[in-house]
Every structure is written in C-alpha cells, then in structure tokens.
Write a protein that binds this DNA or RNA. Structure first.
Length: 460
RNA sequence: GUGGUUGUAGCUCAGUUGGUUAGAGCGCUUGAUUGUGGUUCAAGAGGUCGCCGGUUCGAACCCGGUCUUCCACCCCA
C-alpha cells in the first residue's frame, strides 16, 4: 500500500527557485569569507557524543540529536540501569554519536586534533548544516545552516574589528541595509556580577539581563530575585537597566560602576578599543551598537560578544552571532589558544531578504534561451545552435520533443526564459532562424551563422 | 520540555445546531488556435475532509489520542 509521504518536523525541501536564492546568500558570504583570508574546512555531520555533550549547558544537551547505536544495543545495557527506566542513565549506553549542534565546538575539536598541521593564526570558515531537537517556530528549524568564520591563535582586538567589518560587508553586499551589530564584552558582565556581589550567579544574572528589551525591567528584576540574586545586588546593578546614549556615554557610566573591578575595567578597555577602531574605519550600512544587556547563552564566550539584529521593522530573532572564547580548545586539552568568530544564520537571512524583497530579480532565471523543437532534422540543427550558445556560457536548452509549438511556448513562459529560438523547416531551407524576445513579444530573423555573442542581436 | 493553535482539491481558503451527491478562486488538462506563450472563451480532470479510535440511525463538523503547522515560554541562528 502506498504511504503518504512526509518529512520530519522542522525540516524542509528546497525547490530550484528557493535553492537559487539560498545559493546567492551562500556565494555572497563565501566570497567575503575568502576575501577576508579565511580558508574552508568541513567536519562530519555527527561527532562522538562526548565531544558535544556538556559544551552547551543542560539546555543544549537536551537539544542535541542523539544517534542510536547499531546492532543489538539493548542487550548491552545492564539490568539495573535498564530497569531504572531513567533516560539519562540509559541514553549514554545506547547512543555514542550525536548530530552536530553548531560549528564552533567541532572546530575546536578540529584545531586540537590537527594542531601540528595548522599554521597559526588559523582563519577558517565553515558552511554546513547543524541540527537541534528544538520546537520549530518562525525562523527556527531542526535542520539549518550556519556560516561560521573563526580565527584561532590571535589575541589582537584587530580581529574583532575585522569581524564587525565582515558582518557589515556581507549584509551590505546582500542589499540588507540598516542591520544593527550589537556588541558587548563578557568581562564587563563578569565585572558587574563581581561588583554587585553575585559572582557565583553570573550565568543567571546575564541570562535574565539579556531579556531586558523583551520583557522589561520589572520582569527581569523578578527573574533575578527568583534565581537568588539579592535585592541589594539588583539595586546596585540598576544603572544598567536605563543605560542609553552613545557608546562613549555608556562607557563613561560603566567606568564609574566598574571602578572596583579589574576584569570589568579590562572589558571596558577592550570594548572601547574595538569601538574606536570600527569608528575609524567606518561601516557601510550597519550600525555598531553597544548593548550591555547582550549576554548570549553560550557560556564559552570570554571576551567580546556579537549579535546581529535585522533592520528595524522585521520581526526575526538574531541573524548572526559570535564572540571571543579564550579557552574553547582547553576542554580538549590545548591551553592558551584564543579564538574569536562569528556566525551567519543562513535560513533567517533568507527569510529577511524574502520579506524585504531584496533578492535580485534575475535570480530565478535558470535558462536564458530555449530552442523550440520542430522535429528530428530541425532538432539536430537547433542542437548545434544550443551547443554554440552553451560554449559561450549562455544557459541554453533545446525542448526535448517536437510537441505542439503552443505547449513549448507555455513551457518557455513558465520557466521565465527571456529568449526563444525557432528553427523549423522554413528557416532551415533559408539557413536562418527566428529569435523571439518573450518580454517584448518582438521577433527577428537571423542567418544561422550569425555571431551569437554580438549583443546587438539580443536587443529588440 | 510547558501552554496554546492549525490541518478540507496541486495552492489559498469557504462549508449552516451533526443530515442526500463536500464548494469557490487560482493552477492543471483539452479545445477554439496543425508555427507563437503571457489575454479571452468553452469543456474536463482532480478530495480516504491529516491519521487512528470513540459517540451517533447518520460525523468534514462532537469527544479522545496521534502526527503536522504556526505562536508564546525555555532556549537559540
């Protein structure tokens, strides 16, 4: 019995037209990555569980897709564990592999494994799908692409500056004007936690603070209280809730707040340097904005933190994010290697470009010339023409069978082919062919030996 | 993982307190038009009403479950 076909929740098929648009984004990003000196690598779609687990927090672990072992895996679970019926105890015994959750951790693993072959500083880019067992929503899928660029083995803040520039360049190239690159520094957040006496609750503090623009000051304070942060601590941190104005103003305010925190002041200094450098270089269409509430969930960040927001008016989660992580490779045994990187969320960028109608019009043009088929002899002659066009880099095709001309024209129309060539027996006798412009409806007769690359024959 | 929402023709959607044969627009096929598409006209094809079960004389409609969609949380690109 035929079953109704379906695909898993949170996954998608891509049509030729969708893929053309996706590839346009990929190509733009890739081009800039390479212009900025990054080299591509790829890693397997699945890793050993131990490589991934514990790197993204408890919440992250829950969202990792685990792969069931092969063979008779149940029989290898001891009776006590099995009868406990606890997924958390049984899972490690029946799954040893998991699907890639992001590109950063596999990259860290890659750097450690290949440390002797790499030339540091190593700049790599990676464009591959990742998988998360999340509940799908708008702009949230279970399978989606990340486009990452990271630099390892370079401590200079020039890297951060360059990455801001990279964001700006890519979004400008895509015609997406008015993006906001938010920047913060983990050390500032640590400093604040230290100053207010909530050093051991740093993660809780930042996670709550991160929600400020979404749920408001009151709710944030409530959440902090419920997480065990004292009233006095929250009161001390209160200048954060109303921090406004230019980057320099904010930096000034923070300087007062953090005057007793060494880490905090260091974070301020870093932030100031980056902002000054970006200022000096200038951005094309993006705005760099200091946002002290920007935290980001991943706790491996230690320095700068980035997040990119779509232009105002577009309802979409962040379309990119990144930051500096001083000790990511430390987990895998390689100390004192600093990394900094950014990520582009391909699928969300797609949705934003679609919403703002920013894809180039010609992107759907999969075929530039279609040659109609009038029979065996004529078809062969037409194929010669088509071959000649292809040789010159023109996307050309011959309709495969000599069906009714009307049907062939309809096909050309649907494929949005701008030019149609007619080569029937009449034309063959005279050594000519007819070329028709599908947009204007005009057509003209040309000799078969005309120079097809002479652009003047394509304008009528 | 929590709470809600959605599913009817290829697509977008109607469908009366549960009652004969489930509709529209667009699209598709064919013809008007044996060498001219995008316009027009005519005809036609296409649906286990997401799936499983229950209530009922009778279910697209009511109830339960399940899958899917979208949304708010959690978290995140």
């Amino acid at each position: 019995m035929a079953q109704k076909p379906s695909i898993p929740k949170g996954t998608r098929d891509f049509s030729p037209s969708e893929l053309a648009k996706r590839n346009y984004i990929f190509d733009t990003i890739k081009k800039q990555f390479e212009l900025f000196g990054f080299q591509p690598i790829e890693t397997p779609s699945f890793e050993n569980s131990e490589t991934l687990l514990g790197k993204y927090g408890d919440e992250g672990d829950r969202l990792i897709f685990k792969i069931l072992n092969s063979g008779d895996f149940i029989s290898k679970v001891d009776d006590v564990t099995y009868s406990s019926k606890k997924s958390s105890s049984i899972a490690p015994k029946i799954t040893e592999k998991a699907l890639r959750y992001d590109l950063t951790v596999p990259f860290a693993r890659y750097v450690v494994m290949h440390q002797n072959d790499l030339d540091f500083p190593f700049k790599r880019y990676q464009i591959q799908p990742v998988w998360r067992a999340d509940r799908p929503q708008k702009g949230r899928f279970r399978e989606f692409y990340q486009c990452d660029a990271d630099i390892v083995g370079a401590n200079s803040l020039l890297q951060e500056t360059e990455l801001v520039q990279l964001y700006d360049t890519v979004f400008s190239e895509l015609g997406l004007k008015g993006t906001t690159i938010k920047i913060n520094n983990r050390k500032i957040l640590s400093g604040i936690a230290e100053v207010i006496g909530a050093k051991n609750l740093l993660v809780e503090f930042t996670v709550a603070l991160d929600k400020l623009d979404k749920i408001g000051e009151e709710k944030v304070k409530e959440e902090m209280l419920s997480k065990g942060i004292s009233e006095q601590a929250i009161a001390k941190a209160s200048p954060l809730f109303s921090m406004k104005g230019s980057a320099q103003d904010q930096l000034g305010q923070l300087k007062t707040l953090l005057s007793n925190s060494e880490v905090g002041l260091e974070g301020l200094k870093e932030l100031n340097e980056i902002i000054t450098m970006v200022d000096e270089i200038g951005l094309k269409t993006a705005t760099l904005q200091l946002d002290v509430t920007l935290a980001r969930g991943l706790n491996y960040y230690t320095g700068a933190i980035f997040e990119v927001a779509a232009p105002e008016g577009v309802k979409m989660g962040s379309i990119g994010g990144g930051g500096r992580y001083d000790d990511l490779t430390g987990i895998f045994g390689l100390k004192d290697i600093s990394g900094v990187g950014i990520s582009f969320g391909l699928d969300r960028i797609y949705l934003v470009l679609e919403e703002l109608a920013l894809f180039p019009e010609s992107i759907d043009q999969s075929l530039q010339v279609l040659c109609l088929n009038f029979g065996e002899k004529e078809g062969l002659e037409a194929l010669k023409l088509v071959s000649n066009l292809r040789k010159h880099g023109v996307k050309a095709d011959l309709y495969p069978s000599a069906v009714k001309v009307q049907k062939q024209f309809k096909y050309a129309d649907k494929r949005q082919v701008p030019f149609v060539i007619l080569l029937g027996d009449k034309e063959m006798e005279n050594g000519q062919f007819v070329i028709k412009n599908m947009k204007t409806g005009g057509q003209t007769i040309l000799p078969l030996d005309v120079d097809l690359m002479d652009t003047s024959i394509w304008t009528f």
